[in-house]
Design a protein around this nucleic acid. Structure first.
Lengths: 233, 233
DNA sequence: GTTAAAAGTGTATTTTGTACACTATATTGT
DNA sequence: ACAATATAGTGTACAAAATACACTTTTAAC
């Protein structure tokens, strides 16, 4: 059981895995990253990146490690979602899985993963293949969490490049919430949080009018959070 | 690993436990139910009720079973909170624990548990003993969840008897949120949800003016929830 | 019947949310 | 060079919700 085995109870026990729901945003819609399984069970099927938790690592560490091993993704927003433990969820036997919820911006992903992760592919949330195990249920819960959380935590910025325009930010919110938002009201509300740094630059990618660039003010958010400030959009 | 062992991977694996944070309300303050441990490690210390997950049961079932075994409590509000998996959280070795979050009203508890659960005791959240393992951290997260959730989900009713007065309900909210609330605003807001059934009875326990009794309208809440209604206090 | 304890009630003000349409700027095409 | 076009950016009126605030009613105890 462990080096310090004073009170060992050797009950039969479930295996423990982690599974990561990684969301990305391409400017138009939210995508989820799936892996084509190379081994049985569900060989050839699409699944969430994940794997077994090792004895010496925390489950947070296991999630980060598996994500890196399977997709080359590292150093991104990653938090625990929910633990799935129905007895028959895995045909290999009793496997309990701690699901994680991750956000990445696709430019960051392309830089990091490159052609490294051939088995990984982004899928639209409106149109994705059948998933292995109970991963469809995990994905459903992750989408629900994302929709809920983006309204009261400034996590949307994790899905955008460091410098972004208000139009990009609004497109992101509209994609996540699956509803149109009023441009003027959205801008007023977002700017009134005081969490956007207005940069001395314009967005050079546009072929039309250049948009103002902003950056998320993480320090200010941390500071305000301590004082009980609540982000709400 | 299991009867159907086609793809068995026999990695060393963590043990899996469940721990339940049970909250009760005595009319004045929120209490948490703790168990005095009869066995090592932490023998004689106070801990959250919980125990090992069995091979054939889901983790939800394990939480309900352990709660019943250790405190005689059954059929109460019980939902998953978070999974704790730091490698050194248990001196017995690698033990990952799925924490649950439960609400019960104390009259219900007394009827159910009676003198059965001598080892169990209610403690104030302001003044509780040192806890075994990382249970203080689990409790901290449960309190945080309770405070957050009571504002956007009608879970407070789980802590009250079936029939309650608005004064009782307000006292509960004030105890959970640790802040005074305005009586008239609270009543208006609560009644405007349409989720309270006004009963044709008065509270007979008071020796002064009798208060109107209400009951939570679960069916109406279910119905409204389907239509995207949001409870908010 | 006076007192005391607890329940119950309404309004004015401030803040926040919502609905809504045009102007400004930079590039493209002629 | 100028007209057309695509995108960014801007303000106000109205409705709804949150907040602040103090007295009256009821019932039992004495």
């Amino acid at each position: 059981m462990s080096k310090e085995n004073k009170y060992c109870y050797d009950y039969p026990r479930p295996s423990l895995t982690v599974d990561c729901v990684v969301f990305g945003f391409d400017g138009l819609s939210i995508k989820v990253l799936l892996i084509n399984r190379g081994v049985e069970p569900f060989k050839g099927k699409w699944a969430l990146p994940g794997g077994f938790v090792r004895m010496e690592e925390s489950i947070d560490e296991a999630a980060a490690r598996e994500l890196k091993e399977e997709t080359s993704i590292h150093s991104i927003f990653l938090e625990q979602l929910y633990t799935f433990g129905a007895p028959e969820r895995d045909p290999r036997g009793r496997v309990v899985s701690v699901a994680y919820f991750a956000l990445i911006n696709l430019h960051h992903f392309n830089a990091m993963a490159g052609d490294d992760a051939q088995k990984a592919q982004w899928f639209s949330l409106q149109d994705f293949p059948p998933l292995a195990f109970d991963h469809a249920e995990i994905l459903r819960m992750a989408v629900y969490r994302l929709k809920g959380k983006i309204r009261y935590q400034p996590i949307g910025f994790e899905l955008l490049p460091e410098k972004f325009t208000l139009v990009q930010l609004q497109n992101l919110y509209e994609a996540v919430l699956e509803m149109p938002l009023d441009k003027r009201n959205f801008r007023r509300k977002m700017l009134s949080t005081g969490l956007l740094i207005e940069l001395n630059e314009k967005d050079m990618r546009s072929t039309r009018k250049k948009a103002q660039l902003y950056q998320f003010n993480q320090e200010k958010f941390n500071e305000l959070s301590k004082k009980g400030f609540n982000f709400e959009i």
